[in-house]
């Protein structure tokens, strides 16, 4: 195993990790604000990928312009999901919300099988062939761009959450919903917007990797479990934690891929997951009390 191979793997891990970060930030935002563990996050990623794929295939837009379509579409899907399905049972026991999102994801994924068949679809784009070389290390343009777009949206999300009134309202609603309500914040609207943003993060994350990743109805499961690992690692509801966690898991997966056969590479992140859940369920950056 040469040095450049190690660097190559780590670089690829880091680039994918950035996308994990974005997807997981959406998941952790939804959890932080509504205390809903969104099992349908993988389906939202899948929908984002399909929207990007069809925009390119049917509307002939540039793959990276399709992100501008994916964001509003997924925002609307996420917000309606929240309004019509989550909101009516927002006060039910938490496992009911978990099961509801599981039901929705089963429905959406198999609807996708029904509508678009279970075939793997690969987006055809001229970018996919372009590579940069630094010494022995190859940087693929599409992976780099996916990373950059994910980082850009993650940065925008962070600025919105910390610097704007909307962000302040979202943070208030997640920390103390009743207090926020008393201060005149429209909690229902905040829930709607947060779910919309969370879904859009998932969708954009999916759209960003579509130029180099096949699209198929069950693709979401590859990412949703990773997203849970990232979210738990970073601390449930912690946006910055999810960001750092995504990069860590991306690197951990690439280390796994160096030593283990292909389908075993996620075993490292699963092991991290179990260890974190057992010994520090509040995550890397969480306080010790639950």
């Amino acid at each position: 195993m040469t040095m450049s191979f190690v660097f190559q793997s780590l670089l690829n891990g880091l680039l994918v990790g950035g996308v994990y970060s974005l997807m997981a930030m959406g998941l952790t935002l939804i959890f932080g604000v509504m205390k809903v563990v969104n099992f349908a996050h993988g389906s939202l990623i899948m929908l984002g990928m399909y929207v990007a794929y069809w925009s390119v295939a049917l509307l002939h837009v540039d793959p990276y312009v399709s992100i501008l379509i994916v964001f509003p579409v997924l925002f609307i899907i996420g917000a309606s999901f929240q309004k019509f399905l989550i909101n009516p049972i927002i006060n039910a026991p938490e496992h009911n919300q978990l099961l509801l999102t599981l039901g929705v994801s089963l429905f959406m994924e198999n609807l996708a099988v029904f509508l678009w068949s279970p075939d793997y679809r690969v987006m055809k784009t001229s970018y996919a062939e372009i590579n940069f070389y630094i010494g022995d290390i190859t940087i693929s343009l599409v992976r780099l761009l996916a990373f950059c777009f994910a980082m850009l949206l993650a940065a925008i999300l962070y600025v919105v959450l910390t610097r704007t009134d909307l962000g302040k309202a979202i943070r208030a609603a997640s920390e103390e919903p009743r207090g926020a309500l008393l201060m005149g914040i429209n909690i229902r609207r905040i829930y709607l917007i947060s779910f919309g943003i969370g879904a859009a993060c998932a969708g954009v994350g999916g759209a960003a990797i579509t130029p180099f990743f096949p699209v198929y109805p069950y693709v979401g499961w590859l990412f949703v479990i990773t997203c849970f690992v990232v979210v738990v690692l970073g601390g449930m509801g912690n946006i910055l934690g999810a960001f750092v966690g995504g990069l860590i898991i991306g690197l951990a997966d690439s280390v796994g891929a160096m030593f283990l056969p292909g389908s075993m590479k996620s075993i490292i992140s699963f092991t991290i997951f179990i260890l974190i859940l057992l010994f520090k369920p509040t995550g890397l950056f969480g306080k010790n009390h639950a």
């Binding site: 049972i89 509801l100 599981l102 039901g103 994924e109 099988v113 029904f114 279970p118």
Partner: peptide, 25 residues
């Protein structure tokens, strides 16, 4: 009924699950 689409029964499961959780806890 839908041999070529192996997932259709899961789609119906999902629908039933959502209905049961929302209306018949």
């Amino acid at each position: 009924a839908f041999q070529s689409y192996s997932g259709v029964h899961l789609m119906i499961y999902g629908l039933i699950l959502v209905v049961v959780i929302m209306f018949l806890p």
